[in-house]
């Protein structure tokens, strides 16, 4: 429970600090940003449309591979704790597990999913 309290305390203080930065500034005369000020930075040009859009990411296949790989992490944590106890058996089993997963990376590499161009 102490952990949750500590986390909540830290988050609370950080939020307070950020709010304080925003409101505690005496020099800020509270002026709202005018319409010309709100224009996004394009070095003096005017955009035609909103920037938020269906953004075309190029690495989406990589993210799928990543999520699968990340799953495997969850097995590794308990494994690390008992590694010394279990000895070579643990090494062999995890080695096999990682080898299986590496095949996935090699396959993705072959298919060129780490490339933009």
């Amino acid at each position: 429970m102490t952990i949750v309290i500590a986390v909540l305390l830290i988050v609370g203080l950080s939020f307070l600090f950020t709010v304080g930065l925003r409101s505690g500034v005496a020099v800020d005369d509270g002026r709202q940003a005018s319409n010309p000020q709100q224009r996004p930075v394009l070095g003096g040009s005017d955009p035609e449309t909103h920037a938020l859009q269906r953004f075309h990411i190029r690495y989406y296949t990589m993210t799928l591979l990543f999520v699968a790989f990340e799953m495997e992490m969850m097995f590794m944590y308990p494994w690390a704790v008992v590694f010394v106890e279990e000895g070579p058996k643990a090494l062999a089993e995890m080695g096999m597990f990682l080898a299986i997963l590496s095949v996935g990376i090699l396959y993705g590499w072959k298919e060129g999913i780490f490339e933009w161009e």
Partner: peptide, 14 residues
């Protein structure tokens, strides 16, 4: 689970 994850990866990539 390792094999399943591998299948997931290959499937996702393919």
């Amino acid at each position: 689970a390792g094999v399943t994850l591998l299948a997931t990866m290959v499937g996702a990539v393919a």
